[in-house]
């Protein structure tokens, strides 16, 4: 029972992990991108579209990543080069991305003459598989080594991003740009390039989150109305909960995933807690975290100081 619960939590948390890792990469360069929902939508559509036509998992994921990069590129052009308001640009991206997926999704449905389904071969490729030997270990085997391949991909990406952020030279440059672009600029870092690069990679990762939603959660059938359904926004919340650290986002996504499936696992006759409370909990906790970090006025574990403000070198 508990194992099943945790297993389901991991499954539900994975798309959030993609979205959160992507958004952390973006925010760490000083840009709050409220377009995660839109980028996920676009990734969801592209991956399904490519999967439907090519039956190739790698191609499908690449397509999701590429469309995420493209969407983030639009955002970067507007906010980095044209210095447009970040909130408004992000929200526009969400509207655009949602429309994009639904419009072309509808076209795809028309083309297929009904809801398109992925082939069994493809579904088999993304199904949950027990890793030989490791998967046979009791408890741990089921919990850690019997997932679909995208779960591992998400965790690997999150870990890679953490290592990149904390241990590499360009990761350091990125953190500096997000905290104080003026200082980074004076230190000889190409602020514009750094921003573009990480916003785009972040968008790509968000796109993969969308792929997870349409390929795995959708059960192989394209659902035009509710593919992403707010998961992008939860990811933005999770960034705060994870205090801008992808490694913590792994735990965070598990926690958030757990809340979203908890209602199915708490015995109804013992504790009577309304279902809505479980789904609300992540946001309540996030708000609480937000308040506590602001009370501590700590420079770590809070939003990068340069976030939300576009940088112009000759500002005076």
């Amino acid at each position: 029972m508990i194992i099943n619960f945790l297993f389901a939590a991991i499954k539900a948390g994975t798309p959030l992990l993609f979205g959160t890792t992507g958004e952390i990469m973006t925010e760490k360069t000083g840009h709050l991108n409220l377009g995660v929902e839109g980028m996920m939508f676009m990734g969801a559509f592209m991956s399904f579209f490519v999967a439907y036509h090519s039956d190739n998992l790698v191609l499908s994921l690449l397509a999701a990543f590429a469309i995420g990069v493209f969407a983030a590129f639009i955002y970067a052009v507007l906010t980095v080069s044209f210095m447009a308001n970040q909130n408004v640009t992000g929200l526009t991206l969400t509207i655009f991305g949602t429309g994009f997926a639904k419009f072309f999704g509808a076209m795809m449905i028309d083309e297929a003459g009904g809801s398109p389904k992925l082939s069994t071969k493809f579904l088999n490729a993304i199904s949950e598989k027990s890793i030989p030997v490791l998967g046979d270990i009791p408890v741990i085997g089921k919990l850690l080594f019997s997932h679909n391949p995208l779960v591992y991909l998400a965790i690997v990406i999150a870990i890679l991003c953490t290592v990149y952020m904390l241990k590499t030279r360009s990761g350091l440059n990125m953190r500096a740009v997000g905290e104080n672009p003026g200082a980074a600029d004076a230190a000889g870092i190409n602020v514009t390039l750094t921003k573009y690069l990480h916003i785009m990679v972040g968008g790509g990762i968000c796109g993969l989150g969308g792929a997870y939603l349409s390929l795995i959660n959708g059960g192989g059938i394209w659902n035009n109305s509710s593919v992403v359904n707010g998961q992008g926004w939860i990811s933005v919340a999770l960034v705060i909960f994870a205090s801008w650290n992808p490694a913590k986002a792994i735990i965070g996504s598990l926690v958030f995933g757990a809340f979203s499936v908890l209602q199915f696992y708490v015995p109804k006759n013992i504790i009577e807690i309304p279902n809505a409370f479980y789904v609300m909990l992540p946001f309540l906790i996030t708000t609480f975290v937000l308040i506590v970090t602001s009370m501590k006025k700590s420079k770590e574990g809070s939003q990068p100081a340069g976030c939300g403000v576009n940088y112009f070198r000759e500002e005076r």
Binding site: I74, V77, L78, S81, F82, M83, A84, N85, V88, T89, T92, L93, I95, F96, G97, T98, G99, F100, A101, K102, F103, G105, A106, M107
Partner: peptide, 21 residues
């Protein structure tokens, strides 16, 4: 699909945001 509305909104907004520069 009526979703074309969102796409057009997006494109128009992107253009206006850029040109405000």
């Amino acid at each position: 699909s009526p979703a074309v509305s969102s796409i057009l909104q997006g494109i128009i907004l992107f253009s206006i945001l850029a040109l405000d520069f």
